[in-house]
């Protein structure tokens, strides 16, 4: 079957003997674009590794930062929101309640920030050789998955420490995360492209992410939000994901099929639109750097 896919990819590429950068990327070009990407998938691995290396290279603590960052954030937020402000956390120790939401949030937020700069940061490559540029923001996002994995290990330890081990429904986590990943990629791609054209996009992204953080039930439970504002939260896909993570890891509730499909639908749509926008803007990259 893999041979069949390979054959399909190769024939798509034969069709696309024209210039790889089409000035007007249309819906029909999705096939060739994906075929190109699949052909160069090895590049994704190399780019991710390169990103990872450069992230922690000169620091003394190296990869320990992947753990220290969420851990210290969790400690300070717990202190402020639980000890001082005393936000209720649905019968679960606040640090756990927080961390289960915080880790995916940190992934989302740092992935978008990193992806936004990914193409500009590789300007020397982009202006010299052609390769499917989407590899750059995707590699940036994948790098953050590694950080997330480290964070999850800490979460595991913490859960045991608090005597509240993960529920068996936690096996749903990879599925939920996959959907969340699609959503993240769908935003990362157009942001990476836009940043080339308008240099202040990275600042806008920073501001937007801060606001988004507070509008997502990370530090507080959703039921604290007054009824009339619930709509904002229902429209926020991250809210959907965060609640789902909490339910499967802490409450032992499997995700409902309708919710799952809704999340998947939103994410796929975001990804398709995001990818389309990216490919649309791609031909002008080398002109703008």
């Amino acid at each position: 079957m893999l041979g069949g896919i390979h054959h399909l990819v190769m024939s798509q590429l034969q069709i696309a003997k024209r210039h790889p950068l089409k000035p007007a990327f249309g819906v029909l070009d999705f096939g060739t674009a994906l075929a190109h990407f699949w052909q160069r998938r090895g590049l994704l691995w190399h780019m991710t590794v390169r990103h990872l290396r450069s992230q922690y290279k000169q620091s003394i603590l190296g990869y320990a930062w992947a753990i220290l960052n969420p851990l210290s954030l969790m400690l300070i937020l717990s202190f402020v929101f639980s000890t001082i402000l005393r936000i209720p956390s649905q019968g679960i120790p606040y640090p756990l309640f927080l961390l289960v939401a915080l880790l995916p949030w940190i992934f989302f937020s740092s992935a978008l920030s990193s992806a936004t700069d990914s193409v500009v940061g590789a300007s020397s490559l982009v202006t010299k050789v052609y390769f499917p540029r989407e590899v750059l923001p995707i590699a940036a996002v994948f790098t953050k998955i590694v950080d997330l994995v480290f964070g999850l290990m800490i979460l595991g330890c913490l859960m045991v420490y608090f005597g509240h081990p993960p529920e068996w429904t936690s096996v749903w986590f990879p599925v939920l995360f996959f959907i969340h990943l699609l959503f993240t990629l769908g935003l990362a791609l157009p942001l990476a492209a836009l940043n080339l054209f308008f240099h202040d996009v990275r600042f806008l992204v920073g501001v937007a992410l801060t606001m988004w953080f507070y509008l997502t039930p990370v530090i507080y439970p959703l039921d604290l939000v007054p009824e009339r504002y619930r709509m904002i939260f229902d429209l926020n896909p991250n809210s959907l994901f965060i609640n789902a993570y909490r339910r499967v890891i802490l409450e032992g509730v499997s995700p409902g099929l309708d919710r799952l499909l809704l999340g998947l639908g939103i994410s796929l749509l975001t990804l398709l639109v995001g990818y389309y926008l990216f490919k649309r803007m791609e031909p002008a990259f080398a002109d703008r750097i």
Partner: peptide
Amino acid sequence: AGVMAPSEGEVRAAGRVSP
């Protein structure tokens, strides 16, 4: 090399390009 796209006209380069 395919690094840029033309503003006008057409460019065609079949084959693997090594710059």
